[in-house]
């Protein structure tokens, strides 16, 4: 005999010190923050309060470039997802690559496309689109 059902679990997740600041600056200034590690000298992006590799508390956040490089990507039914390393950062962040139909390659140059109305969420970045496309718009 089988029984089936579903249950709804409400939850909250506090972004904490570094991620709150990252999201506030993204929302209010449209800029992307990274955190420098005093030990390994890497700039971690998105910003975080400590370096997972060294265990050190990170320093004052720095603004990284909205332009970056695709480190890897995958095409799924829900769209294309890539790891993008923004210029000025040493780590890559997972996000959408836009548009989904484009021909993607590792090493492709991309730029963050921000929503005009932002709420303080990582999806305030709609995704990363080819750098040439944004330059055409400019």
């Amino acid at each position: 005999m089988i029984r089936e059902g579903s249950i709804h679990i409400p939850f909250t997740y506090a972004a904490g010190r570094a991620a709150s600041r990252f999201l506030v600056v993204l929302r209010d200034e449209g800029r992307i923050l990274g955190s420098p590690c005093p030990a390994c000298r890497r700039v971690l992006c998105p910003a975080r309060s400590f370096c997972p590799r060294c265990g050190e508390e990170t320093g004052e956040p720095v603004v990284v470039d909205p332009a970056g490089t695709v480190v890897s990507f995958t095409e799924t039914a829900a769209g294309v997802f890539g790891l993008v390393r923004p210029d000025g950062a040493d780590t890559a962040m997972l996000h959408r690559l836009l548009p989904a139909g484009a021909k993607w390659t590792i090493g492709a140059r991309v730029r963050a496309r921000l929503l005009p109305e932002r709420t303080g969420s990582i999806t305030d970045i709609e995704g990363f689109e080819p750098l040439e496309a944004t330059e055409d718009h400019a």
Binding site: E4, S6, H8, P10, A15, L23, V24
Partner: peptide, 13 residues
């Protein structure tokens, strides 16, 4: 302070 709120629908069998 930023917090994400969400409701998770968990199906079980």
């Amino acid at each position: 302070r930023i917090a994400v709120k969400h409701t998770m629908d968990l199906a079980w069998r």
